[in-house]
């Protein structure tokens, strides 16, 4: 405090501090007592899709493989049911929303984004097919989405998408902070260069590490999710989610896409520092809704051996 500080200012300052303290004290005591909205155990339900490929309606009855299966409209019913059962639901998509049915050819993605907004998607990332009508085509329908597109390694600053996607997004549910970012696939060779224009592709591993650390450390997120359109795995050395896990840290869950991989449930892999990271993917064409439930405990101190508080069964990944 300096000498210029007048008495009057000081009174005001003290008053402010008292009000502030009262506020903090009230909140903190609620925290300590565990009353108010803060619970001892919190369950967070992550629902996710990928590669829906404009599958608004189910496959036709004469389809060889998926007759009468799938469809965004049906997914919406299931999401609604789960929202009624669970307190904390987050709904995410890992890209390739567009292309695959005439809905996209005729309406350019407008229907898909309108439906996803109605379903209260929290975030999505972009897949290679989301560039199919060019950056301009994507930009033209983007206003139909009321959720953010997270693109952490596509740099759109030289394009009309500048400022229209986000590098990361933080959601809070009952005091739990969930940090989400999105990693896209290399466009060169996969998407016509005329379609992605001046988009700059940044290294996915570097970008993933950068944003995961930012979310976990600077923003103190309790959970970090990566929406990835890299693909689950490949025979060759192409970068996949499995490789991404090994090369990164601070990511708890990778929600993947691109390879149209059907998994019964999320698979646990171990990251750069030996910590578990879940990787999940939900097939394609709205034929599957991915689900991962996370359980949080309110704890006074960091407990490293968690087996004492929860007894994990075989299906449970330990964190």
């Amino acid at each position: 405090m300096t000498e210029e500080f007048t008495m009057q200012n000081r009174r005001k300052f003290v008053k402010n501090i008292l009000i502030g303290t009262a506020g903090i004290t009230t909140l903190s005591s609620f925290d300590i007592l565990g009353i108010a909205r803060k619970e001892k155990h919190i369950k967070l339900t992550i629902l996710h899709t990928n590669d829906m490929h404009s599958r608004i309606d189910a496959f036709a009855p004469n389809h060889k493989k998926h007759a009468n299966q799938g469809g965004i409209s049906r997914i919406a019913s299931l999401v609604e049911k789960i929202r009624n059962e669970e307190d904390n639901v987050i709904l995410l998509d890992a890209g390739d929303i567009f292309q695959g049915t005439p809905y996209f050819n005729l309406f350019g993605g407008e229907v898909e984004l309108k439906l996803m907004s109605q379903m209260k998607y929290d975030a999505s990332t972009m897949g290679n097919h989301d560039f199919d009508n060019g950056i301009e085509g994507f930009n033209n329908v983007l206003h139909n989405a009321n959720f953010p597109f997270l693109c952490s390694n596509y740099d759109f600053s030289e394009t009309i998408l500048n400022g229209k996607t986000k590098s990361y997004h933080i959601i809070e549910k009952q005091g739990i902070k969930i940090g989400i970012f999105g990693i896209g696939i290399e466009l060169d060779g996969l998407v016509d260069s005329r379609l992605y224009g001046k988009t700059i592709y940044n290294d996915p591993i570097e970008s993933a590490n950068k944003y995961a650390q930012l979310l976990k450390e600077k923003h103190a997120c309790n959970l970090v999710i990566c929406l990835s359109h890299l693909g689950y795995e490949y025979e060759h050395k192409t970068l996949s989610d499995k490789i991404l896990v090994k090369e990164t840290k601070n990511i708890d869950l990778i929600i993947g896409g691109h390879t149209h991989t059907f998994l019964d449930k999320a698979v646990t892999f171990y990251n750069k520092v030996g910590k578990p990271t879940l990787v999940n993917q939900a097939g394609w064409a709205a034929l599957s809704l991915g689900r991962v439930d996370f359980y949080f405990n309110r704890e006074k101190e960091r407990i490293d051996d968690l087996n004492t508080s929860f007894r994990p069964s075989k299906n449970y990944a330990k964190f």
Partner: peptide
């Protein structure tokens, strides 16, 4: 005091014809 991730459980759901379409979405479609 902080929330700590303790466990997870996962199971993906098949989207088959046992699920009905969503009425509100259908009006948009």
């Amino acid at each position: 005091e902080q929330y700590k991730l303790t466990n997870s459980k996962s199971g993906n759901n098949e989207i088959n014809n046992e699920l009905s379409t969503n009425n509100f979405l259908e009006t948009i479609i």
